[in-house]
């Protein structure tokens, strides 16, 4: 059950390479000195864009940088170069696309950062994530509350579906469920607000190691798991009401 991201955390940001073509140092995508395309180095998505691991991202900036890099790295531009450079261009372009797709989605971005920082997101507790290990009683309480809620809601949904099967329409139940749906949507919005606060706290950290950082990361894991639950519940209610 390893995660699906093939890029492993790098110890630090931009690592210096030696340009394979001119031997100069400190090349990233291209050699600073001669401009040759460099081999695909295993960098995380933030580093690939030359950014720190921060969660507040300006979408226009991301898009601009994505298009700029796409134009520089596109395999068509390397049609007349060595096979090796063609492969690198292809690898980098595909890495760029993955990076863009992940970073532009707020939830995928958060999950990606958490994995980069060594946390397990949406994994079984047997793996004993930092979050599970650090989870206190209060968090457990909150989660079991959510489980109760999910269970009750599912019971109601099942009742509604059975009624429908028997050709009955229980308007009271449907109204209740519609109310639940808006309550869930409101909760989801509130949760996104909380997640955003954690982003800000994370981004404000000068040092991403140590207790404050791991606390923030743990709450993000917890928020994401609650969020994923809520999102599923909203989907189920919507489906049931649409039937």
């Amino acid at each position: 059950m390893t995660n699906t991201f093939e890029i492993l955390p790098q110890p630090s940001g931009q690592s210096s390479h030696q340009c394979w073509s001119c031997g100069d140092m400190r090349a990233a995508l291209f050699c600073d000195s001669c401009g040759s395309l460099q081999p695909a180095a295993p960098t995380d998505y933030f580093t690939f864009f030359g950014w720190p691991r921060k969660l507040n991202l300006e979408m226009p900036a991301l898009e601009r940088e994505y298009y700029r890099l796409s134009r520089l790295l596109h395999p068509d531009l390397f049609a007349n170069t060595t096979t090796q450079e063609q492969t690198w261009s292809l690898q980098k372009t595909s890495h760029l696309n993955d990076a863009y797709r992940t970073l532009r989605d707020p939830i995928l971005r958060t999950e990606y950062l958490l994995r980069l920082q060594g946390l397990q997101v949406h994994e079984k507790p047997a793996g004993a994530s930092l979050a599970a290990a650090a989870m206190g009683e209060s968090k457990k309480g909150a989660s079991s509350e959510l489980l109760e809620e999910a269970f009750e809601l599912n019971m109601q949904l099942e009742e509604l579906q059975m009624n429908h099967k028997m050709g009955e329409h229980d308007e009271d139940l449907e109204r209740q469920l519609a109310e639940q749906e808006s309550a869930l949507v409101a909760k989801l919005a509130q949760l996104d607000g909380e997640l955003h606060q954690q982003w800000n706290q994370w981004d404000a950290l000068a040092n991403t190691d140590g207790l404050p950082a791991s606390k923030i990361l743990d709450s993000m894991v917890e928020l994401l798991s609650r969020r994923s639950y809520l999102r599923n519940l909203v989907r189920d209610v919507k489906e049931a009401l649409a039937d």
Binding site: H122, K124, S144, L146, L147, E148, A150, F151, N154, S225, R226, S228, Y229, N232, L233, D236
Partner: peptide
């Protein structure tokens, strides 16, 4: 015992 798997939305009692 009430447990759940958030990623798939399963709830088990």
């Amino acid at each position: 015992g009430l447990v759940g798997a958030p990623e798939c939305g399963d709830v088990m009692k």
